[in-house]
Computed example of a mutant assay.
Amino acid sequence: MEYTFIRLKAREDLKERAAAWFYHKWGVPEAAYLSCEEAYIKGETDCGWYLCLAGEKIVGA
């Protein structure tokens, strides 16, 4: 299996799926993740969001 590592800024279309993935891993509400992801995408924070994909499936972050 081949893995791809991306910045969320490069694939903004994955932000909802990423928030759901984090929620299922850590139990923090998806809205909290979406808020932080949006701040990152808009350049309002230096904190980055990175994903590991196997095809189109999120397998790590």
Rank of each mutant, 00 (worst) to 15 (best):
C52T: 12
A54T: 02
V59Y: 09
E44D: 04
W26F: 14
F22Q: 15
G43M: 05
M1V: 14
K25P: 05
F5L: 07
I6H: 06
C36G: 03
A31R: 04
K42M: 01
G43R: 07
A10E: 13
M1W: 03
F5G: 05
S35D: 12
L8W: 02
V28N: 07
C52M: 02
Y50N: 08
K15S: 12
E16H: 09
A19R: 13
I6R: 00
A10Q: 10
I58E: 03
T4M: 05
A61G: 15
Y23C: 06
E38C: 02
A19C: 05
W49S: 05
Y23V: 14
K25V: 14
L34E: 12
K25R: 15
L51K: 03
G27V: 05
K15Y: 08
R17W: 00
P29I: 09
E12M: 03
I58W: 07
A32Q: 09
G60P: 09
W21G: 05
A39Y: 00
C36F: 01
R17E: 09
E44Q: 06
I58P: 12
K9D: 06
G55Q: 02
K9V: 14
A32K: 10
P29W: 03
L8H: 10
G27H: 00
L8N: 06
R17V: 10
K42H: 08
G27D: 02
E30K: 14
R17A: 11
A18E: 02
E2R: 12
K9I: 15
L51H: 01
A61S: 15
T4Q: 12
K42F: 03
K42L: 15
E56P: 05
M1R: 10
K25C: 00
